[in-house]
Design a protein around this nucleic acid. Sequence first.
DNA 1: ATTCTTTATCGTAATATTGCAATTAAATAA
DNA 2: TTATTTAATTGCAATATTACGATAAAGAAT
Lengths: 108, 108
Amino acid sequence: MGVTKKEHFTTQQNDIANIAKALGHPARIAIIEYLLNVDTCICGDIVNELPLAQPTVSQHLKELKNANLIRGNIEGNAICYCINPETLTHLQDYFLKIIAKINKSTCC
Amino acid sequence: MGVTKKEHFTTQQNDIANIAKALGHPARIAIIEYLLNVDTCICGDIVNELPLAQPTVSQHLKELKNANLIRGNIEGNAICYCINPETLTHLQDYFLKIIAKINKSTCC
DNA sequence: ATTCTTTATCGTAATATTGCAATTAAATAA
DNA sequence: TTATTTAATTGCAATATTACGATAAAGAAT
């Protein structure tokens, strides 16, 4: 039915899945990496950097923003995007916990 | 057009995106967490654990297997699934690098 | 051999995602 | 005011995902 049964899973499971989903596209990984590589914050030259049309980039930025992975500040008629460190750290913390558990369990 | 322009991005970007994508569903996060919580490796009682039908679980397991996040070993007529630590560690290492960069950059 | 158990696959419906051309909105520059 | 710049939104087509009933495949148990 193409519709995820989100309500059957915990808030944390949905939370982590949403962040992971937002990172589940090479263009969005590329945007994150680009934002990291540039010292000052950028707006629309992300479009020049990526092999995608402006509306497509705008859509990817929207998804990253919805997942709280980036922030966008209005600066004149441009918009300055930057990484939101908290969300990446949150995901990192989750994986740290997960990986810590792996070592304790035996595997088939 | 519903088709990702994967070829325009680097292998690493596609690599990370694929792993993230596989984790981008609460059911698959739940499966990972369940596999971690059980000492011995499990096969089909993942189905009993999740609020999803058997074919749906099987499909999610397939995606986790395709992303190399889990492994499945045949054991009689059952299949024993377990976490593949390498892929999670690989993702973890990537985020460590990413987060290390954030601190150095100023944000808007 | 037959039945049971376990899991994968097929087929299908509902919905979501990806991508872009065209347009709109809003601030800036002329 | 009238361009111009910048980025979001709309509308649409192509494809992917999610979910499950039905079925198949393959080993175990009887």
